[in-house]
Each structure stands twice: as C-alpha cells, then as structure tokens.
Design a protein around this nucleic acid. Structure first.
Lengths: 151, 151, 151, 151
DNA sequence: TTTT
DNA sequence: TTTT
C-alpha cells in the first residue's frame, strides 16, 4: 500500500567503491550528479544551474556490472528507492544519510568505438528478488562489520 | 541532460506545517511514510516491515491545497525531486537534510462520506513554472529568514 | 539499454476478466480510467475533462490478487510496461492493440469499514521474475489458444 | 485524482516529421524503440529480444528542439502521457492509435566531438503549461485540419 | 466502462 | 509520526 520510487539520470562522480561481503555478495557505492538547468526569472534574476549529488548503493549482479563498466563520468539511468539510515557521530549525535538503493540500472550513451560494453554485452538487470540470488558462500577474509545490510 | 524524479505513495505522518512567506507564497512541510512489506527468506528468516519517512516540501498552490485537505493519515501520491540541503549545527558541524520538493500531488482514496474534498473539489495542480505564479505581495509581518528558498 | 515504464493511478472500469491457463497461470484483464482535469484557457475557452482508458493485463500472483480484490470502481496504482500487439481483423487488415503489462500494483484508499482487504491482508507483489514462479501444472479444460503469451 | 505517466529511454526510429500549424505551433512526430532483453528460461527456452515501437508526439518548444537535434538513432529520455485516439478507416471501422504525448525530453549520450548539442546548448524543457506559451499567429499556408489537437 |  |  505504498510506493517509494526514484528515477535518476546523471553522471557518476567517482569510480565506484566496490566490496565483496563475506557471503560473496557484491556491493558498490558511488555518487551520481543530476543538474537542474538554471534560468532567468521574469524580473531578470539569474538562477544558476543547481547540481544535486545522490549517494547510490548497488547490490549483487548490478554491483558487478558497476564494477566492470561504471566509471567517473559515466552517464547512468537509475531506478531505485530512497532509504535514510541513521548513525551516531563522534559526538554521539544521531546523524542521517539518505541513499538510493538501486533496483534497475542502465548505462547510457554507449556507442561503438567506445570503451567497454559494446564488445562485452552489458545485460541490464533488475534487482527485485528479496531472497539472495547469489548462493556461493565463501570469501572468508573481509570481516565485514556493516550493520546496515538488509539481512 | 539529467533527471531527478521521485514518486511516492504513502501516509502523512502529521498535519502539515504551513507558512506564508513575506511575498505571500505558501509553503507546507510534512512527513510521509512509505512502508516496504516484510517477508520471509527461503532460509526462514523473518524480515519485518520497514517504514521510510520522507520530508516533504510543497510550494504555492499545492501548499494551499495541502493546508486545506492534507492531514495526519492522509494517503497521498507525490511526484517531485530530491534535494539535499546542508546547514551547520550548534557544534559547527555541517549537517545534511534530504527533502522531496513536490511538483505534483494527488489525494488518494477520497470517497463520498469522507471529510473534505468531496464537497470542495480538490483540483490537482502541477508546480512546474519556475517563475512565481502568485503575484500578490504583502504579508509584512513574518520576517522570514529562510535562506534555502529558491529565489 | 532501454526503459519502458508506465505509472498509472485510476479507477477500474469493470470487474476483471480472469482466466487460468492450462499451466494454471492466472491472467486478469480489465480497463483503467485516468482523467485529466479540464481547465479554462487564458482566452476563456473551456477545455473539458478528458478520460483515457487503458487496457490492463496482469499475470500470476498479481492476477490472483486482482481476482480477489479488484472490482469495478477500485482505485489502483499500476506500474508496468507498454506493449502493442497486432492481430488481423475479419477483413484481413492488421490491427493494433496497446496494453499495459503490470509489474507492480497497489490497491489505494483502502480503509477499515470497507469491503475486503482490511480483513484479508493484500500483500502487494512485484512481478519481475521472467521464469514462471507458479509450478503447479494442471487445469486441463481451458484449451487456451492465446498466442500472445510471453512463453 | 489520477496519474498517467510514461517514462521511456530508447532510440529514435526515423528523423522526426515536423510540422508548423497555422498558429505557428510546432509539432513533431517520430517513433522510439525500446528493447527488452531476451533471456533463457530455466527449462532452457530461448526468449529473444523484443522491441516495442512507440509513437511519440512532441509540441511547441520541445518539438523545435526535436527538429534541431533529434535524428534517426538518437538516444532519448522521454516523459509523457499515454493518449489513444480513434479514427475511422476506409471501411468505416473505428480504429485506435496509441501515442505518447511528451512533457519532458532529454537527449542522452551527447559527448563532445559529436554532432550538435555540445556546441549549441540544448536546454531541456518541460511542457506543462496548459495555456499556449507561443503567441505568434501567422503561418497561413498549411491549412491544418487536424481535429485531434488539444485546442 | 471508472472516478471526482 | 502514518498506514495495513
């Protein structure tokens, strides 16, 4: 009985930060910029462009695609949901971070003659199964202590 | 060359906080809850419902509709954009708040026999003109010092 | 590398037409009305309301929810994709029908004191797995000859 | 109390067909292809790619941008609404055509070194004012007899 | 054919 | 803080 949907098209701000959790699940984090075009009001006031930076979180198969093909500057379509998580800073003050959890992602503007996905086909993937699709459990080293994981 | 779009359906958490700025422009703030249904994983783990609270900001004509018809509990459709603004807390630490600026809003589930909009028709409105549609400039008292206004 | 997404909120025009295929997969068809509010132009011309009728197609679990809870008049949120299929009419002329294939559906405006879902909880479901989730194969009678099925 | 929203990302099928109506309002028509990636079912059946062709209709300022920058093959983001209009064919049979009326459009994948918009900045425009924004009335020749125009 |  |  509710809907929480975000649709973004923008450019990636930095190469994704990719991690593999102990259960071998892949997570990628990066920022995405969307820019609202400025304009001039009727009274002649110049409103400048305004860039919004979004914190993007990608899981599993889509994170592996991000690892392979997403780089600083890549133009992306992203569909996901808003999630705000809270944490305590060093002053014991509760702080909040809003992130976009990606359900679907598309690399845009890819043409032949460009870097990667044209040769290695980038399957667009959806991320809508709540139960883990990835079932290989190893990867012992990275003792992940993330406590904001959905399971 | 970019898109920043949010679509929400949820329930309003409290009666809107409505203000009229010095130029008589109306702004309404309230929270909206979207709840992701819990489920049970294949391995039998219970994932509970998860409620997300969104900070909603509505301007002008839509804010006046919010003032009239939106109450704690109202089910709403909201279309808007994500905006994160920063401010300094009392410890001079930069903090961030993410809000949804509404472009379009629809009251849902209204039927006859219910409170308001059936008698007074609620026109759904869009909010897409960057220049002020509201031209009456008075309302001298409220010396608004908001500095996160778009003009 | 492409997106085909439809988001509708409207009212159902007639009780769903529900069928179970030979493999026991459920399909529901119904129409949904969205109404664009009329207005008056600056030059004083009255533009009337305009109702658009959408042909909705729902599969599997969501179709079973439609069978249980969707009726003429129900207010629905629908997320899906546009699909146009062609067929030959009696004059051997190729004709086209555009339908919305539903991926996600939410019943809106449900409150206590109303008909059904409050007592029998309506789980909102997504429909994003391409391979059949429904595995019971019986239902021998209805010799479905649909050739526009996705498998 | 209703929503009719379409979001498409795809490639243009042919150069736009652009017309200027008698009141100098510009209209552009073209087709846009979205392709759903094929897959292999668990039982080993190959489901091929499936391309959907959408009939796109663009008005006014956005139509002029389409005239300047949209060509066969251009990758576009489109936001709009579904509209089905009916007409009578030569056999006096009522036929239906479903079109997407564009509210917002973005040219994707534009990079330096490519044709046009990088040098001449393409302002993305919205098309949400119901009353005509274009007020120059001339263009006497094209005696348009379209009767599906919104005014 | 729905709804407000 | 909402709702089912």
């Amino acid at each position: 009985m509710s809907v929480n949907k975000v649709i973004l098209i923008g450019n990636v701000g930095k190469d994704p930060d990719v991690r593999y959790l102990e259960n071998n699940v892949c997570v990628a984090n990066f920022t995405l910029a969307t820019t609202e075009r400025g304009y001039t009001t009727q009274s002649g006031i110049q409103i400048p462009d305004k860039t919004e930076w979004h914190n993007i979180v990608v899981w599993r198969g889509l994170a592996e695609i991000a690892e392979k093909y997403v780089r600083k500057g890549t133009q992306l379509y992203i569909e996901g949901k808003i999630r705000t998580r809270s944490w305590e800073d060093q002053n014991k003050i509760r702080r909040y971070t809003t992130e976009i959890y990606v359900d679907n992602m598309e690399l845009l503007g890819r043409r032949d003659g460009q870097s990667s996905p044209s040769s290695a086909p980038v399957m667009s993937q959806s991320q809508n199964n709540p139960s883990p699709a990835n079932t290989s459990y190893n990867s012992p080293i990275e003792n992940s202590s993330d406590n904001d994981l959905p399971f």
